[in-house]
């Protein structure tokens, strides 16, 4: 059982810690660093609640080890809004369209949306809507609030509802 010293940034803040090899990135973010916005549920990669950005790419924090994030820049849902509280456009869109109910799946959904809108910046609204919709296959909303999420996607893509 090995322990490792890791150094990474989370939402721009630098952290140095020792982790046991078997600690997942999701657990490390929540239990060691206190970024409890990242939710863990299935821990099989299926539900998407735990999705964070690692070096800009949206991925499952339950399927990555903390030790593998050594040297990485991680973004969690806490890192989306601006320091003054102004919501990220995807958060605003989810809010405007009742895209969340209990909110359990929302941190993951918001992270994926933020990564995909950034990747499709400048794309036409059809491509933006398609990209966002496709990426949502990686998220399960147990409240089944998919219509609200789709409305938020259309707002982000600039497609009239």
């Amino acid at each position: 059982m090995s322990e490792h010293r890791i150094e990474l940034t989370v939402n721009g803040n630098r952290h140095i810690a020792r982790v046991e090899a078997r600690t997942s990135l999701g657990e490390f973010l929540r239990d060691t660093l206190g970024y409890t916005g990242t939710h863990l549920a299935c821990e099989h990669g299926v539900c998407g609640a735990c999705t964070v950005m690692v070096d800009g790419d949206a991925m499952r924090s339950c399927l990555t080890l903390a030790v593998q994030a050594d040297g990485a820049a991680v973004t969690t849902v806490e890192g989306l809004a601006q320091a003054d509280g102004t919501l990220h456009p995807v958060q605003q869109a989810l809010r405007d369209n009742f895209g969340l109910q209990c909110g359990f799946c929302t941190p993951g959904v918001a992270i994926t949306m933020a990564a995909v809108t950034r990747d499709n910046e400048g794309a036409d609204s059809g491509a933006m809507e398609e990209g966002l919709t496709q990426a949502m296959s990686g998220h399960i909303c147990r409240c089944t609030g998919y219509q609200g999420i789709r409305r938020a996607i259309r707002q982000l893509a600039g497609v009239s509802a």
């Binding site: 990669g45 998407g48 790419d57 949206a58 399927l63 990555t64 994926t112 995909v116 990426a135 990686g138």
Partner: peptide
């Protein structure tokens, strides 16, 4: 193969 998020890793 899988989803956007799983293909990223």
């Amino acid at each position: 193969v899988g989803h956007h998020q799983t293909r990223n890793r």
